[in-house]
Design a protein around this nucleic acid. Structure first.
Lengths: 239, 239
DNA sequence: CTGAAAGCGCTTACAG
DNA sequence: CTGAAAGCGCTTACAG
């Protein structure tokens, strides 16, 4: 029976050294064949691959991460997964989508879920640096989050979801729905169905211009009344 | 404007070397203070901590993982998260629970979600080895999964969820509900409510002894009829 | 096409 | 209490 004293899992690991030795080549060549370098003779390449399979070798990702100049892992920073309400599956869907996409790529995914209930929050930048994360996907983050601002202003490329960024940093992309058009569509739908008394909830109260715009426009529509409910929320209102 | 050519994120990383130099000590001492070794004088320890904060230093986890003899990361191998049906949140709940627990610990969590739709499946053992994973939690895995068997027979400690293990390997733990008792309770409930014609679905058809047991027992209960529907499933049946 | 060597950022005996 | 050195398993110029 194996006991807890035998926990040194690593001892049985086959390393690049083992493969090199058995193949009678240097570890450089083994590394190169595993990274598809062209300058390895077809013959030795085949021999190495064979021996690697025989020895059940596959490169250690941690070592690869440390030694490589390239960044090999993505970060997914999400606030919606951990404390989601049953109704909102968006964050979870994004999580699954990102996971699948990355798992079909040669990259690793490091997941940082924000727990609003927990105090032990860490700087996103620090999280990324500690793990050699080369690019991040942010979901459910508020624009006024200080850690968000910090991360955005580094040279780490980011894709932010569901919020519009106003940075001229060329490394920041954003994916979100066209809120203005969506608002127009929804309003149009309601009007077409004969509704004339419409409430706009979820307006970002920090954006007063939006509200004025709504009022101004609705004033131009005879017989239609727009009310506004102030409910702090990170989604934009209509128009 | 930052462009894609500045992607070398790493250049701005403060390393243990920077801290050591500025503190006028060797990196060994810095390492020791960050790992709470006792044999560092209180004075230098304070100085190092101060300088580390000043330099915004935090140890690189990848390097730590590679150099340390200890295993610093857990693996969560789950089949239920990616292709769950809306009704079954169990896998997702487990995922969240494991995530929270690990994030409150000094360990890392590496997540391997099995996509039954994808062909690109990898050996769990290989997954663990490549990432220096020291222990794994398995959810939604079938006992006849060859990769499961492979992993179970290594010296990597595992906790399997929702299935009973029959290994005498001391490194395997399992957490699941008491199926036998639950079955008894359910049947009792049905009987108490006057039901007399009961169907047992979800019986693991590979376990014929279970079925015989059910029949034998039900034969002893006058007026009660147990039917059995064969539906391959990894959950146990009743009794 | 191949290999020796330096390096990634840490940890850990070991000697002082 | 402190530091020099070897090592973790790879990658990557560089020289041959």
């Amino acid at each position: 029976m194996i006991t807890r004293n035998d926990w040194d899992v690593r001892k049985s690991l086959t390393t690049i050294k083992d493969v090199a030795k058995k193949a009678g080549v240097s570890i450089s060549v083994v590394s190169k064949t595993f990274n598809n370098y062209a300058d390895v003779s077809e013959e030795t390449r085949q021999r190495i691959l064979e021996i690697a399979k025989e020895l059940d070798y596959s490169p250690n990702i941690v070592a690869k991460n440390l030694s490589s100049k390239k960044q090999l892992t993505f970060g997914l920073i999400s606030s919606g997964v951990l404390n989601n309400n049953e109704k909102d599956n968006n964050a979870f869907d994004i999580f699954k989508g990102v996971y699948k996409a990355v798992s079909e790529s040669p990259y690793e995914l490091s997941i940082y879920l924000i727990d609003s209930l927990s105090q032990k929050q860490q700087s996103y930048l620090q999280y990324c640096r500690e793990r050699n994360i080369g690019g991040a996907i942010l979901q459910g983050i508020r624009t006024d989050d200080p850690y968000y601002k910090e991360l955005i202003n580094t040279n780490i490329p980011c894709v932010v979801l569901d919020i519009m960024t106003e940075t001229e940093n060329g490394l920041i992309g954003s994916v979100s729905i066209n809120n203005a058009q969506a608002g127009r569509d929804i309003a149009g739908h309601l009007l077409k169905n004969g509704h004339r008394d419409i409430v706009v909830v979820s307006v970002d109260t920090r954006n007063l211009r939006q509200q004025r715009k709504v009022k101004r426009r609705s004033a131009g529509l005879p017989g239609i009344r727009f009310s506004i409910r102030r409910k702090p929320h990170r989604l934009c209102g209509f128009f």
